Amino acid sequence: MFSRKRGGPKHVRPTDAPPSAALERSLAADDEAPPPTHGPWDAKYAPEGVERLDLGSLQIPAIEGVEVRVQANPDGGVEQIVLVDGESALQLGVFAAPRSEGIWDEVRAEIAQAMSADGVAPREIAGPYGIELAAQVNTPEGPADVRFVGVDGPRWMVRALYQGAAASDPSREGALGQVLSGLVVIRDAEARPVREALPLRLPKEMADQAAAQAEAQGAQGPGANGRHA
């Protein structure tokens, strides 16, 4: 999976684009906030009666045909989430952000700068959540299309990375797009540095299963995989 650690300044410029719909709702008074029509949802807006995989700060809706691959450490802390549907994949991350400011514009600029430094030519495109970032990158298997999507919410930001068919052609998001729009973010009350990854954990049954497999197979390294269809 394409991944890069990013640092840099922590504050958004005042000239950046307006906040996302999720962030605008959080800034409005509760009695004036318009009802949301889609996610990623803040916990207080999440629809009821939906089956979801509970990973702590992030809940993933169960969509038929979508495989959820979860990489975790021996303590059950989730280090990577990748969803696969046919020829497309979606990698998810969720991070702390200020309540009154979005950080996706700045994060997107830094991703683009890092790509350019590696000789990649990123381009900005309009998407349903705002400005996205698309590019073709070099991988051990050859050139691959990637597309970054960011959603600013109240004190959180979801970063989604499409790969494969859904990266080269947004109309092919299909079930992965449904998953993204159905995500639920559970932001705790703890003060966290901007951009810190929000804590993710395996559900108890998956953690117990991973521990049992590790014990049965012996030392297999730090990774543990969980799958949920």
Rank of each mutant, 00 (worst) to 15 (best):
G142F: 07
G142S: 10
G142A: 11
P143S: 09
P143C: 09
A144Y: 15
D145P: 09
V146I: 15
R147M: 03
V149G: 02
G150I: 00
G150P: 02
G150E: 00
G150W: 00
V151N: 04
V151W: 01
V151E: 06
D152F: 00
G153L: 05
G153C: 07
W156Q: 12
W156R: 10
M157T: 02
A160C: 08
L161I: 00
L161M: 08
Q163C: 00
A165K: 02
A165M: 03
S168D: 08
S168V: 07
S168M: 06
D169S: 05
D169I: 01
D169V: 01
P170K: 12
S171I: 01
S171V: 04
S171G: 10
S171Q: 07
S171H: 06
R172F: 12
R172Q: 15
E173G: 13
A175R: 07
G177D: 03
L180A: 03
L180N: 04
L180M: 08
S181T: 15
S181H: 14
S181N: 13
G182A: 04
L183A: 14
V184D: 14
R187T: 04
R187F: 01
D188G: 13
A189S: 11
E190G: 13
E190T: 14
E190V: 15
A191C: 10
R192F: 03
P193F: 15
V194C: 07
V194D: 11
R195T: 07
R195V: 06
R195I: 04
E196Q: 12
E196M: 09
A197Y: 12
P199M: 07
L200R: 03
L200G: 01
L200E: 02
R201P: 02
L202Y: 05
K204H: 06
E205L: 05
M206S: 08
D208K: 12
Q209L: 11
Q209N: 11
Q209P: 05
